[in-house]
Design a binder for these strands. Structure first.
Lengths: 242, 242
DNA sequence: CGTTATGTTGATAGCCGTCAACATACGTGG
DNA sequence: CCACGTATGTTGACGGCTATCAACATAACG
């Protein structure tokens, strides 16, 4: 399958913002052309479901922009976010018919999706792609285990500080960073208070109180409920409890 | 590299208890012979460290018997077990110089280890082996996320019940199952109370109290501190909180 | 401008952690 | 085999952290 290069125009893949950071980075130009032919863009509004748990999965995709949350639900409604994904993360569970969790757009999300059979064919032909997905999965596993330490052993104050530190640190990659004066880091929070609580194993009230305390202590500043400035990253790191 | 078959004798790999369930299952007979040539057995006593966090890793391995715990430590001593591994799990972090966590023998452990360079060479030559490791890693990631729900949202009673249910269910695979009369499941607990607490994000006192409650409720029976019988698996599952 | 969703703050309660005492199991050496 | 010391596990009393419940404030939206 070859892409038709419209004279003077570039293909979507060639213009792609995450071209080099995504799994597609493992592909040559020819292979990318094949990818371009089977991929299409999909825009999701904030809150829109992407995968239901146990739903048959018919496609994979890359996150081009926005934040995706992976959640697990208990029968009585208790909820836990078990993963956050940002550009250029890969979306989808290879080698399984059904996803073991829900995926949902936390903000507006732009995806680049591929039909499952076509992607699996390319995967079989391109060992470099599989290797890349494998490495990404190992990194996700490391991140999940870091989060297990947070959930099992950290206090509410440490949890909230750890979360804010992580978002602040990664805000340029996430695409939610704002210009800020001085050395402080300013960003738009991709989650609401309820989602932060579900990510940290807390309640919204506790999250709100801990953010308030960090604000009172001069570590944070809020320009709006979702507009954060970290005034003292070092102190935030120290409160996170290493 | 070819294995010399001593006449009449079988190689260690051919006699291996986990031959077909381990990653080696992805190998042909010839490839297994190559594996046999580079592997060697290692026995560890309970409590012996296997990998220190940030330690340079020079080998990979399979767990042949016993239980290995992966732990993370905070600077003030708080500890969290972020993974338990049983036969025929693979041990080691591919594509990284240093392990992001400690690994320690929870019981006596028998490993089959391979020098890292030799294993990585076989890995490059055998795409099936990499695929198998990839699939195992995805399963580990799913398990880690299940545990995140437990750590973030379950009560102490639900945590202990979930843990006991998991061990009881997997006891035949783990190799700690005992013969039991009637339909109840009997097994030897591979962790002490302190380790159970570190796996569940609780204290030893809370673990002890919850086990006591399950005993009083007739769900469990203890023949010794580490000899458990589950009398009612369905009720244990129900208490686990789905 | 009214209505709803989201976030904050306060009062109270309860689960689980902390501290302490005791019990039991285990290993060592006499 | 028993005495002893140590490690491990159990049980009780109490306190604190965080959940729960409730009221209010603010933002979002038509």
């Amino acid at each position: 399958m070859q892409t038709v290069l419209e004279d003077g125009h570039k293909t979507r893949c060639e213009m792609c913002a995450i071209r080099h950071r995504a799994v597609c980075g493992a592909l040559s130009n020819d292979e990318l052309a094949a990818m371009n032919a089977i991929s299409r863009q999909r825009i999701l509004a904030s809150g829109e479901p992407i995968l239901s748990a146990d739903e048959e999965i018919s496609w994979f995709g890359n996150i081009v922009s926005g934040t995706v949350k992976l959640t697990k639900l208990m029968s009585d409604g208790r909820q836990q976010i078990v993963g956050l994904q940002f550009p250029p993360d890969f979306l989808g569970r290879a080698f399984k018919q059904r996803s073991p969790y829900f995926a949902e757009a936390a903000t507006e999300v732009e995806l680049c999706i591929f039909p499952k059979p076509a992607f699996e064919r390319i995967l079989k032909e391109k060992p470099g792609l599989e290797l890349r997905l494998f490495q990404d999965t190992l990194d996700e596993l490391d991140a999940a285990r870091d989060w297990m330490l947070l959930l099992g052993r950290k206090t509410a104050a440490e949890k909230v500080a750890s979360f804010l530190h992580m978002i602040a640190r990664r805000s340029p990659m996430i695409g939610c960073a704002h210009l800020a004066d001085a050395g402080d880091i300013q960003f738009q929070m991709p989650l609401n208070r309820s989602e932060i609580a579900d990510y940290l194993g807390l309640t919204i009230e506790t999250v709100s109180r801990q953010i308030g305390r960090l604000k009172a202590d001069g570590v944070l500043q809020l320009h709006a409920t979702r507009e954060f400035s970290v005034l003292d990253m070092d102190r935030l790191a120290r409160i996170s409890g290493i």
